[in-house]
Nucleic acid binder design. Structure first.
Lengths: 216, 216
DNA sequence: CGCGTTCGTTAGACGTTATAACGTCCAGCC
DNA sequence: GGCTGGACGTTATAACGTCTAACGAACGCG
């Protein structure tokens, strides 16, 4: 924060140009997907020449990585805001779906097909942990032991590095995990258009899954 | 002539070359993902020159589309085989996971991030319906009405174009749908590597979800 | 004012998809 | 046997992409 105060005009201009580049990149990704992102097209639309962008981003992958990080931060922010406003688990689920539908390609930037050579930087895993933390806090309701999940609970009791609070019972970890995987299951298939050919409304399916998760 | 019945040697050679091209493409996709598929690299590895491939596939997208169709057919085949061997729902789930783990990029070819301009051809939707049909048949067990899914059942009763058998109760359609979305939720996150940073075993989570689906 | 860092430029190497035009070879037909 | 048409593979070329190298200009700082 204080560093932003004392930033030189040079650095402020640099940050502004970087933001403008990312803005164009986001727009391009939203219309054509991440694989179609072209530094050349961005530079042309900004009135600059191609290699000028390399003053601001080391490579195309670096730009995409930055956008992935922004997407993570954006999702974590909406989750945090929703929880701060007293949102319970269904509210969080709604916020997640709204966030995803607002920009499907941003969702796929986070949860979509991974690029083989790509390794997630440390930041993203930290933000992912933060997202899980908010979800975990919303799963604070009573948890009855589930016979079908006994093995999972035992496994979670031993591998809980992603849940910082050691007081969380395994049943709560399990519920947060299930929220994540089940909502992602419906949402990703919806965003990929796999329901359109079947003529059914994804929101109904999503809501049913949310109710099922909240009511247990 | 009788040549219309049996393929001419010309056509057999053509089919063989097409298959060899697809073989190299599959290998390339398995190691570097679909976005890294290069017709140039394939042609070089086959000892041919670049544009020669255009005699066999109209474009790069056409080749990828063919591979997507093959992946669909492969999944439908393993599903069909599993069901023909008397496999129940857990067996189908295991077959799905084995199929996905055998070649993760093939799974993403079917269920991964969609390309914006891409429209699924009619064949793939037909095969997708066949896959759902097998899944539906495996969900033939008794179905108790679920309070949280009443709205979904009603919606499914009205939009059931993807289930050809009109005798299927909505509860069974719902269960098949939930199998699909929940298993995909765990599987896609696993294949994308989102669990590796959390230090937990995806197979335990997957098995728990399978048990939860089978025991209801 | 001078100097150095940063910025943006052009030139170019290299790879990609895709088309056009040109040989080449084989199958079938007279 | 010889001819002809079509399929095949080639080289050449265009257009676009990332990214590096080298150069000039502009800006801020001492």
């Amino acid at each position: 924060m204080a560093a932003a105060d004392t930033s030189s005009p040079r650095e402020r201009y640099r940050a502004q140009v970087r933001e403008e580049i990312k803005e164009h990149a986001r727009e391009q990704i939203a219309t054509a997907g991440a694989s179609a992102l072209s530094l050349n097209a961005i530079s042309k639309r900004m009135g600059m020449s191609g290699p000028a962008l390399y003053r601001y981003f080391a490579s195309r992958d670096a730009l995409i990585t930055e956008l992935v990080k922004d997407a993570y931060r954006s999702l974590a922010g909406t989750f945090h805001d929703c929880a701060a406003a007293g949102g319970d688990l269904p509210a969080l689920a709604r916020a997640l779906r709204d966030w995803a539908l607002a920009d499907p390609h941003r969702y796929f930037l986070v949860y979509g097909t991974p690029v083989p050579g790509y390794r997630a930087p440390e930041d993203t895993t930290l933000i992912a942990a933060e997202i899980m933390s908010v979800l975990l806090a919303a799963c604070a309701a009573e948890d009855a032991p589930d016979a079908a999940a006994a093995g999972l609970d035992e496994h979670l009791a031993q591998h809980r590095t992603w849940a910082e609070d050691p007081a969380d019972p395994p049943a709560r970890l399990r519920r947060a995990l299930l929220c994540w995987t089940r909502l992602h299951g419906v949402l990703s298939l919806e965003l990929a258009g796999h329901f359109t050919g079947m003529g059914l409304d994804p929101s109904v399916l999503y809501d049913a899954e949310v109710r099922s998760l909240a009511a247990r």
